[in-house]
Design a protein around this nucleic acid. Structure first.
Lengths: 194, 194, 194, 194
DNA sequence: CATGAATGAGGATTCATTCAT
DNA sequence: TATGAATGAATCCTCATTCAT
């Protein structure tokens, strides 16, 4: 009854409501645990008086989770893309990517937390993997250009995302400024050619 | 109802039952999602015919989770300690710590998965933090000895644990051999003095 | 909110809408189960984009059910009446009634199915009973004329309707031709004088 | 977790509880509509303070419905079988079958009502069909012995069950004595050879 | 100690209905 | 009039927990 990723079929009002609910869901997941992010909690944060409305706008919890996941990926993707367009070398692009991540944690505190927590519950999947693939490809191109040393690009991509996720998990306890600088330093040391 | 982590108050039988349940819980959390790790699932894996017995031995789900968390930390701690005792330099100790982690993933596949998944649900907390503190202290001593470059030891400890956790999260999809070697390499590059 | 079965108070448009909804409801009940015949399903089949319109035109689900029931009875009544007008004897009228029923199943597949399914949910009641009474009266007159044997006319009317309903319930699985012939035969044997 | 039609795996207590719930369900379906026979209504009639217990003993609503259906069929089957064992001719057996049905309505008022109402919601299915098949077979054997006239046995079986169901539907409004006698008479006339 | 039955709160979801536009 | 968004009650179901035995 409800388009899974509506493009033009959705009313303006409906899009607004969906966005409102998705936003509330992001805040809820970031604040509470994923398991505790019930429709009731989301409804409260969305200012709704009934959980029925969430079911009215989303075919089920899975569609909501997927919509939230896609929304975060979209916002995050745009955010990062804007800050990577100027990169000349692969190393510079990688640096910009890392800084964009840290900056995103500051400007969108809840988004990355929710992203990490929802990763294993989302069924869209290709989002996170495409992130990984893009990063791996960047690393590979850097290797081809001789900027980076020889390493397994998939493993290195996994490492970089793991570092990012590690900061996200402790974002509220650490100094993002210091973390960001050190992140750039560590990744540079990890990747640069001998 | 029951002492939270009684030492001498528990009978042998009781300790055995608790251990049996904790073991089953570890397997359950590793196999299923945390949210899906219900008492029923744990009871099945523990060979128990009633979830009531879990409630009988543990004051509540939280105590079970905390007990599981502490058990994993204890096993992991002993495992790592055995493999780090011989380290001379801080760098060597760090290397042994990393290798011990990777080896632990191989010998105790469920423990680390459960550890990572339970981290945000455990209320004991100091366990993970004590790990973190020990690692930070190791890094600091390395810095004092001039083995490591200057960096924020807390951030670096966070990074190292993040790398470890990243591997754990994908342990079933990656080549642990390659990951372990690259992990050592990356951490060495990240920490060594100029 | 709305007159229960207004005659002159309803505008033409309103009557048309009610008829449209009633028709869709008949199809819905025949196609789905009664319990599954929700306003949403009915609205879909009526080409309506909102279930609110159904509530607007009918005071509640009960009025809709009753309206549907009455509509079916009216259509069915006219259909049968047309085919019974020529009957001379009571036996002949009864035969025509039975044949009209079978013919109705063919020409209005949904109506009788819905009729049977709605019977126990309709609160108008007198509809089905009036049918029953008319049939009983026909049987009684046949008895008075000596065409039928002695039997309890209410019970026999109940039997005849039960046979009809039995065929309706399996209309899609049986050969209506054979059933019709056998129905006439059985009822004739059941009623005729010794 | 719960056997669908437990034989020996069920505790005595559990069997008793299941029987209690099944009994309450039969009463509920007979009293209310099928659609209104919610777990809550059933729980009330079973003297339970929680609908959760029903879910505890039955894997889902479908299993409960099927269990109820099977229970009724079992009770009904035994009841009828006891009263048909003495039948010599097919006609006599048929007569005993009809009388057993009417007697069952008297001694088990709710069972047949529930049976008819649950028929289209039960997924076990073969129960009702096997009833039909047995009846058709009885009719066929009667035809072979020359006791019955020539007719489509499936249609006639359908008719006989329809007559039975018709009485069930109005059991509370009619005189079962009269109905039973007339039922036997009608079926005899419908089936006997010329 | 251990069992399994029982509880009640909380989960997502569906539904008829209401209401502002 | 008609729409679609919103509501809240009710449904089935799962869960941790309690309790008699």
């Amino acid at each position: 009854m409800r388009a899974k990723s509506g493009s033009g079929e959705l009313t303006v009002t409906e899009q607004a409501r969906r966005a409102q609910i998705v936003g509330a869901a992001i805040r809820t997941v970031a604040e509470l645990d994923y398991a505790s992010a019930s429709f009731k909690q989301i409804a409260v944060r969305a200012g709704l008086s009934s959980t029925g409305l969430i079911s009215y706008h989303f075919a089920g919890k899975q569609e909501l989770v997927d919509s939230v996941f896609e929304e975060i990926l979209a916002v995050f993707g745009r955010f990062v893309l804007e800050r990577m367009s100027g990169g000349g070398t692969a190393a510079e692009e990688l640096r910009l990517f890392l800084l964009a991540n840290v900056e995103f944690m500051r400007s969108h505190p809840d988004h990355l937390v929710a992203l990490v927590r929802l990763r294993e519950h989302a069924t869209v999947g290709d989002g996170a993997d495409s992130d990984h693939r893009a990063l791996a490809e960047l690393l590979r191109s850097g290797q081809r250009r001789g900027e980076f040393r020889s390493f397994d690009v998939d493993v290195m991509a996994l490492f970089i995302m793991a570092l990012r996720n590690g900061i996200v998990a402790r974002a509220s306890e650490v100094d993002l400024e210091v973390c960001g600088d050190e992140l750039v330093e560590v990744v540079e040391r990890a990747t640069k050619g001998d």
